[in-house]
């Protein structure tokens, strides 16, 4: 993280991610909130690239910006009663308290861990490293996760069938 380019890129991406996250919380219209959410997803993807984890960045774009945002939008469109806007709810204060607690936790973790130089040598291939790790050391969780996902999909199909 030495060159001036990386530092500038980092700050830009950081502001994008946090900024759109704040927008998601504050904006009235839910669909606009989803658009801001996509903005923060892309910001996170940018941060991944900065950490030279390009495979994760591309998967982040594909999964989050591509599919999860659609999921959110469909959820909004198909819930009949949702008033389509971020109306004030009674849970406001509880949410604020929870948020503050979360911020406190993050700051604590950030200060405790020592951040030493990570990226010693330059840009090296991480996609194949992830692939090998998934299929060698972590093959069991990989298989269990896929079975879980399959079960979830079948469950969804069964739930929606009319007859």
């Amino acid at each position: 993280m030495t060159g001036v380019g990386e530092v500038a890129a980092f700050w830009i991406l950081a502001t994008i991610t946090v900024g759109s996250a704040v927008v998601v919380a504050l904006v009235r219209d839910l669909v606009r909130a989803v658009v801001a959410l996509v903005g923060s997803f892309l910001g996170v993807a940018g941060l991944f690239i900065l950490l030279s984890a390009e495979f994760l960045a591309v998967v982040q774009v594909l999964i989050y910006a591509g599919a999860i945002s659609i999921l959110m939008v469909f959820a909004i469109a198909l819930t009949p009663r949702s008033a389509r806007d971020n109306a004030e709810t009674a849970m406001r204060w509880l949410a604020l308290a929870l948020a503050l607690a979360m911020v406190g936790l993050l700051i604590a973790v950030a200060t405790v861990t020592e951040w030493g130089p990570q990226a010693k040598e330059g840009f090296q291939e991480t996609a194949s490293a992830i692939g090998e790790a998934l299929l060698n050391r972590y093959v069991l969780p990989f298989e269990v996760a896929s079975v879980l996902l399959l079960a979830a999909m079948l469950g969804a199909v069964v739930m929606v069938r009319e007859d």
Binding site: V31, V34, V35, V38, L42, E54, F55, V58, V59, V61, L62, A65, G66, A67, S69, I70, V73, E125, A127
Partner: peptide, 20 residues
């Protein structure tokens, strides 16, 4: 070195904007 996946990932973001 993730070129192929990059194409699919980027073109999938267009789907949301079609809905918008």
């Amino acid at each position: 070195n993730v070129g192929l996946l990059f194409i699919v990932a980027v073109s999938s973001t267009a789907t949301l904007f079609v809905f918008l």
